[in-house]
Nucleic acid binder design. Structure first.
Lengths: 90, 90
DNA sequence: CAGTTATTTAGATATTTGTCTAATTATTTA
DNA sequence: TAAATAATTAGACAAATATCTAAATAACTG
């Protein structure tokens, strides 16, 4: 849903997390290490990203590995392009 | 700035307003008439859209005409495409 | 000018959000 | 099995947000 997606993207920390995951898959702890914020706070951000389908979490032993999922952004892309009457999707 | 843009888009009423303005320019009152919400509330939403550069307001006598401005969305489009470009499924 | 219309601004309030600390769950290892 | 490590859940709280009513501003009209 569009609501959950925009909500997830409406935070600089969460967008930074997506930036990180674009480079490589990371565990929750590795992500938290890159921010001046507690692990529970990061965990909460990851939850919102997960709710939006922007990331996926897979348990690897005692770790949880987070992966970006860009396919959800196609929905946003479609929404976006429909406003730009003069240009068509490539 | 990305922050103001995402903030403006993170509300269903504001996205609906953009949808309306995609069809035609409208005055503040005409916009408010299409929602089950008071005029001051709509006025506030219009202000946030204006702050993000998504709409422009021009005074026409005692009316204020609102126009959509899609060029701001190019920034969002660029942000979006940069995720899709080089993140490959593993 | 006085009254009406269009819109915004101000102030109040309930809800949502982002963050923290403390506690809990799950897994690994000595 | 006990201790250590990884991560989440729970609960609290301040700040931000969406909404309302009332008041203010600006422009038109008789």
């Amino acid at each position: 849903m569009m609501n959950v997606l925009f909500k997830a993207l409406n935070d600089p920390t969460r967008r930074q997390i997506l930036d990180l995951l674009r480079e490589a898959d990371l565990t929750a702890g590795e992500i938290a290490d890159r921010f001046a914020m507690t692990k529970p706070s990061i965990s909460h951000h990851l939850d919102l990203l997960k709710q939006a389908g922007l990331v996926e979490a897979t348990k690897k032993g005692q770790f949880i590995l987070y992966t970006i999922n860009t396919t959800v952004l196609d929905e946003l892309l479609a929404w976006l392009l429909h406003f730009r009457q003069d240009s068509q999707p490539k």
